[in-house]
Every structure is written in structure tokens, then in C-alpha cells.
Design a protein around this nucleic acid. Structure first.
Lengths: 204, 204
DNA sequence: GATAAAACTGATTAGTCAGTCAGTGTTTAG
DNA sequence: CTAAACACTGACTGACTAATCAGTTTTATC
């Protein structure tokens, strides 16, 4: 009796397993998610998961890589054929898109906000590289807006990198409040943009 | 043969267990920390831990309560007999103290930044109350500075609560970068204060 | 120094965990 | 059509898990 794959097309069992793993690791954490759970969610045997991914840790690293690539490609897509009035306007739209993605792809940000990958990064180079690449790409996006704004005059003469980092950490703080159900980012959005404008428009 | 307690004075076995639990839960997470580990760290039997704390979850809740009380009492102590020039100055000193405490008592903030308590809060009222109380106390501190600054003229006519929330999320973002070893908060400190000043000194 | 309450332990249990392995079905390429 | 590579499974293992319990030791009180 041949088993017909649930996926009508394109999505292999391996991808199906990976996608389920991202959601489960994000929602429940690494230690609290068992391979059996991933297996149940995908109608696979645990042995099959270990056939595709050598260990549970490797499955997690694949999930992290997937998240990294997802975030980067989403932003690449967003910037494609998009023009911005000026740097300040660009920053505002980036923040709006960041908060949108953090809501739409909450699993990605839950995974990135969990403690496990940062502990793993201390002993695992691959993990460290995924995290570094992800964060560098994100900070770079903010930095680009600052540099552009300084050129077109919409942003004051501030330190591009440091200002980008502070704004990024402000957004990440709000994203954390949102995904941990502490405060709603919608309520804070207008205030966030206002604060961001002040940081960018004034030199001290 | 009477067993002499390791603690020369004051610290009971129960407290010893609780302190070890805070550190282990903070560093390794709830699921990845076993009662056996806590037992080994305190030279106690697992049965004794279950004698003092009915379940592993209750031990975690006690740890969270301890963190809550620790943070609140540290800030209470900090404000005791302390005068501030004005609201803006007060804010700067609060931020400095916040970052200091987040470094000195890193376990507390690691515990508060882990995902587990926020998941638990969805189904456990006690947990929810601990988290709410902790965050309300912290936001209130920032809000007090804004209110004071608006009174003495050092801070512009901004929305006190919302501005406090945005600044708080900015600080929490930086704290997260610090405790997850992403960026050093020392490098960002000066920039943080500058940005904060701009947010507070200008009305749009 | 007797008594009771509190603190503590060793041994155990039922269950879950990541990971293995020998073997079966399925796809693909010549 | 065949052979090899690939995808997949059921049954299993040894290590670990939270929690229990009957019984012992320590402490506090009179």
C-alpha cells in the first residue's frame, strides 16, 4: 500500500518536518519539544526525522538557518523596486514593515528571542554564524536608512552605526513585548515613530 | 551522624535550593534544568526539594517571586534618601542603575527574558501576577522620572506613560543584547542616554 | 529528657527522552 | 527490467525524568 504524501506538491517531507520544528521550537523551546512531537505533527516516524537530521540539535540549526534565510529574503523582497522619499521616511517604513513581519512570522522572532540559540552559539560555530548573519543583516537595514537620511538631509549628523543599533534595540524591545504578550505593539507604534524621529532629527 | 549545614548562618536549606534554582533556571531554562541538578548543586536529596516545593513548577514560581521581590527591593533601596536635580537627570541615573543591576544580577534578567514564564502566565494566574507586578513596577519608575521632568521643565510635554514605555522597551532591548552576548551595553550606553535625552527634550 | 513537629533521605516507580538498527518500500537511472 | 540510491518504518534501548513514600534524623518546646 503506497503512502500518498499529504503535500499536494513541492513540499517534501524533510521541509514539512523542518517547518513543524520551527513552530514547535519557537512556541515551546528546544528542550520542551520532543522529536516525538515533531513526528506526530508531520505524520512521520521518529526514525525518519533522524534520517533527515542527524541529531535534534542539527534539526534546530536547520530551523535557525531557515529563519535566517526567511528574514533576509523577506527584506530583500521588500526593498526590491521600492523607492523612498528620504532616509527618515525610509526608516519609518522599515520599522512598520519590521513590526508587520514580527507579527506575521511570529515563530521566526520567537525562535530568535529564545535563550537556547545564544547558549548554543557559545559552543557551536554554525549557530553563532547564523545569529551573527541574521543580526548584522537587520542592523544594516536600519543603518542604510540613517546613511541615506544623512545624505539627503532628513537625518542629522549622528553616528550611523550606533544610532541604528539603538533604534534596532528599541524595536526589538517592542517586538519582545508583543510576542511575549506584555504590551501591544499597535498601541506603541505611533509613539515609537515619534521617538525615532526625534532621535534622528536632532543632533544632541 | 548529624549533618552540618554548609551555610554558616541565616540561609536555610530552602533558601539555598531557591537560589540555586534561580541560577539554573536562568542559565539553562525550565525544561532543561532537572530537579536532580538542583539537588546536586545544593547537596540535597530530590525528595527534600519536593518536601519544600510541591512541584517543579512551584519551585519555578517561587524563583520568579524571588526575582520580582529582589528587583523591586533593589530599586526601593536605590531611591531611598536619593535626590535628583530634575526629571531628566533622574531618568539618566535610573537607566544607569538599570543597566548596572542587569549586569550585577544577570540571573534575574535572564529568567525574566526566558520564554517559559510568559507561556506559563497564559494558564497560571500566580505567574501572570508576578510578571505584571514586576513590569508595572519597572515602567512606573521610568514614568515617575518623566512626570517629575515635566513638572520641573527639564522634559517636554510628552505622554508620560507611553514615553516611559518606549524608553523602557529601548533599555530592555539593550539588556537583552547584553545578556544574550550580542552587543555590549557599555558601548551603547552613551548613545542610549543621548537618544533618551532627545526623546524627552523635544515635543515632536 | 520526653514529645511532637519539621527537615531530610534512599529506594523506587511509571513514564519519557534522543538515538539506533535491521529491514521494507519507493524512486530513479541506465 | 534491474540495480542502486533514497525514503521510510517498527521495535527497541539505556539513560534520564518528576514525583512518591515509608522511614530516619534533627530541632524546638515544655
Amino acid at each position: 500500500m503506497p503512502k500518498i504524501s499529504k503535500n499536494s506538491e513541492g513540499v517534501s517531507k524533510k521541509e514539512e518536518i523542518l517547518n513543524a520544528a520551527i513552530i514547535l521550537f519557537a512556541e515551546q523551546g528546544f528542550s520542551n519539544t520532543s522529536i516525538t512531537e515533531v513526528a506526530k505533527a508531520t505524520n512521520a516516524s521518529t526514525a525518519n526525522i533522524f534520517y533527515h537530521f542527524k541529531t535534534k540539535e542539527e534539526l534546530f540549526l536547520a530551523a535557525l538557518q531557515n529563519v535566517k534565510e526567511g528574514i533576509i529574503s523577506h527584506f530583500d523582497e521588500y526593498f526590491k523596486d521600492r523607492e523612498f522619499e528620504n532616509g527618515l521616511q525610509m526608516m519609518e517604513e522599515i520599522i512598520a514593515y519590521y513590526l508587520y513581519i514580527a507579527g506575521a512570522m511570529e515563530q521566526w522572532f520567537l525562535l530568535l528571542h529564545s535563550h537556547y540559540p545564544y547558549r548554543l552559539a557559545l559552543v557551536n560555530e554554525v549557530c553563532r554564524e547564523h545569529l551573527e548573519k541574521t543580526y548584522n543583516s537587520l542592523v544594516e537595514i536600519f543603518e542604510k536608512a540613517v546613511v541615506k537620511g544623512k545624505e539627503d538631509g532628513s537625518i542629522a549628523d549622528v553616528d550611523s552605526r550606533k544610532t541604528a543599533l539603538v533604534i534596532f534595540s528599541m524595536i526589538e524591545g517592542v517586538v519582545r513585548f508583543k510576542i511575549y504578550n506584555l504590551y501591544d505593539s499597535g498601541v506603541l507604534f505611533a509613539e515609537l515613530i515619534k521617538s525615532c524621529n526625534k532621535i534622528l532629527k536632532y543632533k544632541e
